[in-house]
């Protein structure tokens, strides 16, 4: 058996001045999640649902400033007009379509 060393769980006090500073969900405490105080110190943990929710924030609409242009990656392929005159449609990641759809099954 290996010997396990103990250390006190570090604590931190956070002063709230108003009820609006309370986190909105039950898995969080002021200043971070319930699980943020781990032996290595505070960690910022987000679950998938929370991250997906943030996607709808108005802060995420515009592309990052100074994004380099790489055809076919950060901007559509250089448009080669086809004979019929239509440019190929660009496919960029679409906004959230994650309305609690069941997780897929994978055949590998």
């Amino acid at each position: 058996m290996s010997k396990t060393s103990c250390q006190a769980i570090p604590t931190r006090r956070i002063v709230l001045n108003d009820a609006s500073q309370l986190p909105a969900d039950y898995s969080s405490t002021p200043g971070g999640t319930l699980f943020s105080t781990t032996p290595g110190g505070t960690r910022i943990i987000y679950d998938r649902a929370f991250l997906l929710e943030c996607r709808n924030s108005p802060l995420t609409r515009s592309p990052p400033p100074n994004m380099p242009k790489i055809p076919g990656v950060t901007c559509p392929q250089a448009m080669k007009t086809k004979e019929n005159g239509h440019a190929p449609e660009a496919k960029v990641a679409k906004p959230a379509e994650h309305v609690d759809e069941p997780q897929f099954h994978m055949d590998i």
């Binding site: 996607r55 609409r61 592309p63 990052p64 994004m67 990656v73 950060t74 990641a93 906004p95």
Partner: peptide, 14 residues
């Protein structure tokens, strides 16, 4: 930040 990640993710090809 989470928001900066989504800005990026939503503006690159899947």
């Amino acid at each position: 930040s989470v928001e900066q990640f989504w800005q990026l993710y939503s503006h690159v090809m899947r």
